[in-house]
Each structure stands twice: as C-alpha cells, then as structure tokens.
Design a protein around this nucleic acid. Structure first.
Lengths: 121, 121
DNA sequence: TTTACCACTATCCTTTTGTATACTACTTAC
DNA sequence: GTAAGTAGTATACAAAAGGATAGTGGTAAA
C-alpha cells in the first residue's frame, strides 16, 4: 500500500487549538431544546409560558434551565415586568441574532445531507 | 408593558420543519469525538491506530463507534488493505470535506464568542 | 515462547442528559 | 373556597453517552 501522508505536528497543534471555539459554538446549540427555543425567539419576544406552548414537549424544568444557559451566554435577555401577575419577557439579544448565519449554514448543509441520504438510502 | 409580537403559526410551522436539517447537521458533528476525528482526517488519510494516537484520550471503542457512524453518513471512507498485518485506512470523502465550510462558520462564531465572554466574563 | 503490532469487540460501570410529577408563591375571577 | 394564570423549583427517575478494562485473531520479530 501507499504510505499515508504524515501528520505535521505543528499544524496539528494549531488545529487542536482551533477546535475549542468550534466546540463553543456547538455547545450553545447543543441539547434537545436550545435550537427550538432560539428559533422561537427569532420570531419575536416571548413570555415563559408562551415559549412552553410553542416548543412542543418541553417541560418547565428544561425550559427554565435552557433559558438560564442562553442568558448566561448573552444570547437571551430576561426582562421582568412587575405587573400583577409578574410577567417575564425573553428576547434574543443582538448577539443572539448573530446565530442566524450559523444556523443558516447548518441548515443549508443539512438540507443537502437529507437529499443525499435519501437517494442513496 | 408593550404587547409582545404575535407568533405567526404558519411561519412557525415552516420553521419547525426547517429545524430538522439543522439538527442533522449538528448530529454529524455531535459528541465528544467526531470533530477531532474529522479534523485529523482533513490533514490526510490515517490508519486506526494513527487516529487513536492523534486524538488524545479517545478509547478504541469510541473511535471504532464514531468511525462507523461517520462512514454510514458517507463522510469517511474505510479501505482495507489485505497486507499482513491487515491495515485499514480511513479517509475523508469529498462530501466529508464539504464540512470544512460548516466548521469554519462555527469556528468564526466561536472565536468571536470566546472574545466576548472573556471581556465580560 | 513471550512480546508486540494490527484492528478491532465485549462487558461493565459512571456520568450526563432529559423526563415525570408534584410543588411554591402570588393574584384575580368565579 | 376553588380554579386558573403568572413563573418558576424540587425530587426522583430513566435513558443516553461515554470510560475502563479485558479479550479476539492473526502475524512476526526477539
């Protein structure tokens, strides 16, 4: 057999480092619920119970947890209105909207992938 | 408080559907090991034990499992050379290389995210 | 004959992730 | 007083992902 291409350790080192930010990006979209929550908020600001209704199957616990995570990543803003009863509004930050291009890239690849996997079975 | 923007059910329906391909794309990169394996193979074809060496911490079991998954998604090609001892070479398919743009998009966002989280964090 | 390399597989265990269900605290409407 | 709506939390459990360790079957070198 042919000799396989040697790995260049330097390049690989650089590369390993460059994996970390990719992981970060994957992490903010990871899990079962973050994507639908983010997309729900891309269509407008929502209250807790509104999101719960729009994201089918999610429990309060998961919604609460995911929103806290998204908030800690600056992607979602939580605004409390001290009306009665108290109302909490969630909105995507401008930064959160910067995920749109990322999601679009993923979707484009995913659409092509679906087609490919269908024809080949 | 202001009235929050109403959700348009049609748009949301369309949108829900469009989540599926995004999930597909996330799935092919999901888990702890697929990304480093793919990136390792972007630098050239490798044998099983070579990848195991280059991806620090991975066990044979996980490597085997992930390679099978990548192969079933057409991203990686497995070639057996019946030399003695038998040698198996893994390579990224052309399709596998199409992930480069996706990974680049994720990395760019991730780099910006790291910076942002550092100054504020 | 023991060791080592090749490419795995099998079993068991821990950790992480997500689910189910009930509960808190407050106010208004019936 | 009881239900319903606001926004959650607490506890216990199930499922999925991943890790540790050992074993398979072949060759070949020491």
């Amino acid at each position: 057999m042919e000799k396989t291409k040697e790995t260049n350790p330097h390049t690989w080192g650089e590369c390993t480092k460059s994996i970390l930010p990719v992981r970060d990006a994957l992490e903010v979209l990871s899990g079962k619920w973050k994507l639908p929550i983010i997309i729900s908020l891309m269509f407008g600001n929502k209250r807790f119970s509104q999101i719960a209704k729009e994201v089918p199957g999610i429990t309060d616990k998961m919604l609460s947890k995911e929103l806290r995570e998204l908030e800690s990543n600056d992607l979602v803003k939580r605004t409390v209105y001290d009306s009665i009863p108290v109302v909490v509004e969630y909105s995507l930050t401008e930064y959160g909207h910067s995920l749109e291009i990322v999601i679009k890239t993923l979707r484009d690849w995913g659409v092509a992938h679906r087609k490919r996997m269908m024809v080949e079975g």
